[in-house]
């Protein structure tokens, strides 16, 4: 697995004369390497800079200073613009606003059509992409009639059809209900596991972050924690200091450990948590 996206000393300032905080950097020296095929969650508060970072990956934003490169291509280099956007697809937060066409399959085809792919090949890719996100049976529907989770999966299919090496999802579930969130996350996980597509998901839901291979925590435009979910979520104190959430099970075990009980250093989901506590309770009695 080689490095795929490389972020070096990235600083970024919004160029907005109306903004009162114009002297503040939204990104304050970020260094990050994303490996090919990995599943990375970037978490942080609103305003931490996580979405700004996401928009640097496919050169929607360009660094004020520092560099971002994809497969060795610098995002500042205009001649690589389409190569970069073809290999890194970006899914945005509001599912309604990123669907262009009035029929699901026509929308999924949009990206491929822009790339000038032959019609037969587009057809194949569109069907394949819709199947990958379990939306094939809705291919002739109008997007208006779909639920939020379904619309977001159509948006993902539109990116997948372009056959990118990586998809970046900028808070794809923030506007969805719990069911929609599950649909989107399991679709994304499947793409990562079965097709080896690199996934970078920007989120503030910790339940989603624990599913990743790697969690990068950002605050005030800086990376302050970076590691496997277990490594990151074992730093309960540190996360709380930055006023970030910790999964409830993780926090419970952390609290019990604080009382001196023998428990694993970090548990992530409810099963692990229940296992640990069961062991503890049965060990005592």
């Amino acid at each position: 697995m080689g490095s795929f996206i490389e972020v070096k000393d990235l600083y970024f300032k919004y160029d907005d004369p109306e903004d009162e905080n114009k002297n503040e950097f939204a990104l304050n020296g970020i260094n990050l390497t994303i490996e090919k095929g990995s599943f990375v969650a970037v978490v942080g508060h609103n305003g931490s800079g996580k979405s700004t970072l996401a928009k640097h990956f496919n050169s929607l934003y360009l660094p004020t200073s520092g560099d971002v490169s994809v497969n060795g291509m610098n995002t500042k280099d205009d001649s690589h613009l389409f190569d970069i956007r073809r290999s890194i697809g970006l899914v945005l937060q509001n599912p309604d606003n990123q669907i262009v066409a009035g029929i699901v399959e026509d929308d999924v085809a949009f990206g491929c059509e822009n790339l000038g792919i032959p019609p037969k090949e587009i057809r194949k890719r569109v069907d394949d992409a819709l199947k990958a996100v379990d939306m094939y049976e809705y291919r002739l529907h109008s997007p208006d009639k779909l639920s939020g989770g379904q619309k977001q999966r159509v948006a993902i299919a539109g990116i997948i059809a372009m056959e990118p090496e990586c998809i970046v999802l900028d808070e794809p579930t923030a506007m969805l209900d719990p069911q929609g969130r599950d649909e989107v996350i399991s679709a994304v996980m499947k793409l990562n596991r079965e097709r080896g597509i690199t996934v970078i998901i920007i989120t503030h839901y910790m339940e989603e972050a624990v599913l990743a291979d790697r969690v990068v925590v950002i605050d005030k435009g800086r990376v302050f924690l970076d590691g496997t979910p277990k490594e990151v979520f074992s730093q309960v104190e540190m996360l709380k200091q930055h006023r970030l959430d910790v999964p409830q099970g993780t926090e419970l075990v952390y609290k019990l450990r604080g009382c001196g009980f023998e428990l694993p250093k970090c548990v992530l989901d409810e099963n692990e948590c229940a296992d640990a506590i069961e062991k503890l309770l049965k060990g005592v009695s």
Partner: peptide, 18 residues
């Protein structure tokens, strides 16, 4: 409906006879 994770943990413990 999704119950909070912490409630889920307690439900699991109960299922296991605690």
């Amino acid at each position: 409906l999704r119950v909070p994770q912490i409630t889920k943990v307690m439900m699991l413990l109960k299922q296991r006879g605690i």
